[in-house]
């Protein structure tokens, strides 16, 4: 089941990517970390880079699972699903996202 593995990886990467991109934004950083965003400008810049990389890697994982035309669709739809998940998590359980940033330091 190599396809299933790559697809699972793609899901996780796009979810993490979207979460990092959200945390890189001042308003969401404060919402999750409960501290002023200005103090963490460096970390947030790093998070933005990590988020973009994760989304790109998710695309690569999709390409490893399927033919390119199919991979494009899966990737776009995964981005939508991940962005929605992150937005709803931020709205209802922002604390859950704190761990994701601890991973990056």
């Amino acid at each position: 089941m190599p396809e299933a593995f790559w697809l699972l990886l793609a899901c996780l990467l796009s979810l993490a990517g979207m979460a990092w991109l959200a945390l890189a934004m001042a308003v969401h950083w404060e919402q999750v970390m409960l501290q002023p965003a200005a103090r963490a400008a460096g970390v947030r810049l790093l998070l933005r880079g990590a988020g973009a990389c994760a989304l790109a890697l998710a695309a690569a994982a999709c390409l490893l699972a399927d033919r390119p035309s199919m991979a494009l669709l899966v990737w776009l739809m995964l981005l939508a699903a991940s962005a929605l998940t992150v937005a709803l998590t931020l709205a209802w359980r922002p604390a859950l996202l704190r761990g994701l940033c601890a991973l990056r330091g």
Binding site: M18, A22, M25, V27, H28, A83, V86, A87, L88, L90, A91, W92
Partner: peptide, 9 residues
């Protein structure tokens, strides 16, 4: 983009 992840129930 600024409100890409924004939902304030």
């Amino acid at each position: 983009f600024r409100e890409f992840f924004t939902f304030r129930p």
